[in-house]
């Protein structure tokens, strides 16, 4: 993969996320925190309006943009902060921009936004190029 500073890439990584998407991630990851699949508990236990997606689902979806763009074996580092919850019905777009290239490694600035343009994940990846 050849990239240069300033290159950008973006992908819609999930459209209109459903509770079923979230449940499927729960099963695959093993994270059965009821806040992510039990609406009744999400409301009563913590006062949330509904269940919300695992932060790690947002990170995983964002990672899919990275591996589709840069290759499945190129990542050296990948880190994010979870900036906003993802609710059923949200559509997420993951965006990356190459900010630095040094010693064969590209630094990628990352943001994943919902349908309102609000970030849900912000972070950085380093990939071998």
């Amino acid at each position: 993969m050849t990239v240069k500073v300033g290159d950008t890439h973006e992908a819609v990584v999930v459209e209109n996320i459903q509770r079923t998407h979230i449940v499927k991630y729960a099963g695959a990851s093993g994270d059965f925190n009821p806040l992510h699949h039990d609406d009744t508990l999400a409301k009563s236990l913590a006062g949330y309006p509904s269940v919300f997606a695992h932060g790690m689902l947002s990170m995983g979806l964002t990672g899919r943009m990275l591996t589709d763009w840069l290759g499945a074996t190129s990542l050296k580092k990948y880190g994010v902060r979870f900036t906003r919850q993802v609710w059923p019905g949200d559509t997420l777009t993951a965006k990356g921009e190459v900010t630095e290239i040094k010693d064969g490694l590209a630094t990628i600035k990352l943001v994943t936004v919902n349908q309102n343009g609000e970030s849900v994940v912000e972070g950085e990846a380093v990939a071998a190029i």
């Binding site: 994270d31 925190n33 009821p34 806040l35 236990l45 913590a46 695992h54 932060g55 790690m56 990170m59 074996t73 990542l75 050296k76 580092k77 990948y78 880190g79 994010v80 902060r81 979870f82």
Partner: peptide, 19 residues
């Protein structure tokens, strides 16, 4: 990581050394 009730996952970082 995250947690029940008032716990949330704030950040996650990985370093990849070997496939």
């Amino acid at each position: 990581g995250g947690g029940l009730g008032r716990g949330l996952h704030a950040e996650q970082h990985y370093e990849y050394h070997h496939p």
